[in-house]
């Protein structure tokens, strides 16, 4: 099973890309995943006139398969300069937009976990200052079912006691953090059921906006989050140098509940 997947990804990486790049008028518009959803996805979330290009400099990491489709870990990073926004879309999810990050003073990178309903490309669309969207992605296999099942704290009712609680930490000077030259990483966990609205009788209920500020009240990053982000989300944000703390995490969910906490 694995060897076949390896061969397929070898095909995607080595063979298919140049062929498709040479024939940009194919019905998939050069999409290395050859996803029928891609042209519509692009139109819906970027607008009709948006300029896009598939770009290996946008790195999206995930597991090869979703052992837990309610918590699929994704790491997005890029060495493109002047990044304005990072949008994460999942072609075959019933709710396809996962999050939108404005890195501001942070590195153009984010890690999170999300709910995957079936095997799908997971894409990061990175907009640079010239307005161009650079697109990277990874394929995650799944037996399915991530968006249509209640999370544990919704199922047992315990979410009411922890709603909006924040725990987190800045990992500074950890040269041993792999995959980047960042001097500091903020990891933050927010207690929230993140209901998709796709489970019978449970309306969508999710954190919709978060912002991180430093001790001088300078906004370091801003992120919009949507239903597919996992229950009790954990995010990682990287910084080129350790930001002056304590950091303030503020936010709101779609019902108007406020999040307001500090992380040392």
């Amino acid at each position: 099973m694995l060897p076949r997947r390896l061969l397929l990804s070898a095909c995607a990486a080595l063979l298919c890309l140049p062929v498709l790049a040479a024939a940009p008028n194919d019905s998939f518009e050069g999409d290395p995943f050859q996803s029928f959803q891609w042209p519509e996805l692009k139109k819906e979330f970027l607008g009709r006139g948006a300029r896009t290009q598939f770009d290996a400099r946008v790195k999206v990491q995930g597991p090869t398969f979703a052992e837990d489709p309610m918590n699929v870990p994704i790491t997005v990073s890029t060495d493109l300069p002047g990044v304005q926004r990072i949008v994460v879309l999942v072609d075959r999810n019933p709710i396809r937009k996962v999050l939108e990050l404005q890195p501001l003073a942070a590195q153009p990178a984010v890690s999170f976990r999300f709910k995957l309903e079936q095997a799908s490309p997971v894409r990061a669309l990175v907009q640079t200052a010239d307005g161009l969207w650079h697109v990277g992605g990874t394929w995650v296999d799944s037996a399915g079912g991530g968006c249509t099942v209640s999370g544990a704290t919704r199922a047992d009712g315990s979410w009411t006691q922890t709603l909006g609680q924040v725990s987190g930490r800045v990992f500074a000077g950890q040269a041993s953090t792999p995959g980047g030259d960042s001097a500091a990483r903020l990891r933050v966990r927010i207690m929230h059921p993140m209901d998709t609205g796709l489970v019978g009788g449970i309306p969508a209920f999710y954190v919709s906006k978060l912002s991180v500020r430093d001790a001088a009240d300078r906004e370091l990053l801003r992120i919009q989050t949507f239903e597919p982000v996992s229950e009790n989300p954990v995010f990682s944000f990287d910084f080129a140098k350790p930001p002056p703390g304590p950091l303030r995490i503020t936010g709101v969910d779609n019902n108007g509940n406020r999040i307001n906490s500090t992380v040392e």
């Binding site: 597991p63 837990d68 918590n71 870990p73 990891r187 966990r189 500090t262 992380v263």
Partner: peptide, 23 residues
């Protein structure tokens, strides 16, 4: 191992993030 990470790492992560202050 991919499953081991999915099953177990979140618990270690919580322990690393938890003892700090929360509101």
């Amino acid at each position: 191992y991919t499953r081991n990470v999915a099953h177990l790492y979140p618990g270690y992560e919580r322990a690393a993030l938890q003892p700090r202050r929360s509101p």
